[in-house]
Design a protein around this nucleic acid. Structure first.
Lengths: 182, 182
DNA sequence: ACCTGAACACCGTTCAAGT
DNA sequence: ACCTGAACACCGTTCAAGT
């Protein structure tokens, strides 16, 4: 007898993502996710191997979405330095728009997420190639990417809490790195 | 009737830290910590308000320890650029020597830990003052610190897994930032 | 094929009872 | 003053039973 589904995998991931965005991934239980789509926690195991697998799906969705935004923002610029500045701004805007999602994106590095993340780096390689040459593009990306991630983690963790001018600090960091790479 | 202690606060924190260093903070239960010092989990509540408070104590201990190492490494150099390079190397060495502890140090920002962290930034202000002037020292620190933290988080998360020459990449990042600040 | 309740081992935390 | 076992509400996960 073919007892029919009350929901879909995509709907479950979307509901889980919404819960993560509003409460943070370690405040979201499988019972919460199940309730959000009208089923019970054990039913999730028909679709996802375990909690980590379900949350990895959110992770991958988010990285794919971020990569699309990054590509679009770079395409809007002509000069490589302008492209890199736009990429940095877009990255920060995404993290600040989805702070708890951003935390999840770095919390549990699944193999699949690592692969998508390396795409993120690849996006910066084209403008860096034009700016510093193909040979040094990878090395340059390894300066910018850690700055971006570190800045956002610190900012979201409240490390700059007391400090005014965070936007300027970010712009100054990007400009400093681009100047140092010249 | 004065039933006497089986352990001390310091011993508990030390045991908890050791467990965190070997298993990661989210794999360590209060029962594990209690067992390591010969008591039961509920007894921990006589000494620490809750799990977060106990782990915050580890957190603060680690930041204090790291700050001491940073100060010592800077004191061994004369030139400001050499001091900053030494600070960066020491910071990375600490994170790589205690990867799971480093993760805890950024996981749950307690108020006290944020205060000690700001000391960490302060340590870099003196050499930056000599390098770029007092006026720009703070801005400069806000370029280096995110790079350091981002690089380490990414390295420890396996983001550079496939890539050779991580040591050179780190050195190149520091050199690039110092050059950009000139 | 998918969902369910019941069960399991495990959490953090509280508390009355012991010394 | 500090420790304990028992209890509570909650986890993730398994599984036999339902449709």
């Amino acid at each position: 007898m073919p007892a029919r589904p009350k929901t879909t995998d995509a709907e479950i991931v979307a509901a889980a993502r919404a819960l993560v965005e509003s409460h943070g991934h370690d405040q979201v239980s499988l019972a919460d996710v199940a309730a959000a789509v009208g089923i019970r926690a054990p039913s999730l195991y028909n679709r996802f191997a375990d909690r980590a697998t379900l949350f990895a799906a959110i992770d991958q969705e988010a990285w794919t979405e971020l990569n699309a935004k990054l590509r679009a923002s770079a395409a809007r610029q002509r000069e490589p330095a302008a492209q890199l500045t736009a990429l940095a701004r877009t990255y920060r805007a995404y993290a600040k728009a989805h702070p708890r999602l951003y935390a999840l994106m770095w919390a549990n590095p699944s193999e699949a997420a690592l692969a998508i993340r390396s795409e993120t780096v690849a996006i910066t390689l084209a403008p860096f190639g034009k700016l510093v040459g193909e040979r040094d593009a990878f090395a340059a990306a390894r300066v910018l990417a850690p700055f971006l991630h570190g800045f956002l983690t610190m900012e979201l963790a409240g490390a700059f809490r007391m400090a005014p001018g965070i936007d300027q600090a970010f712009a100054h960091g990007i400009a400093t790195i681009l100047k140092g790479l010249e």
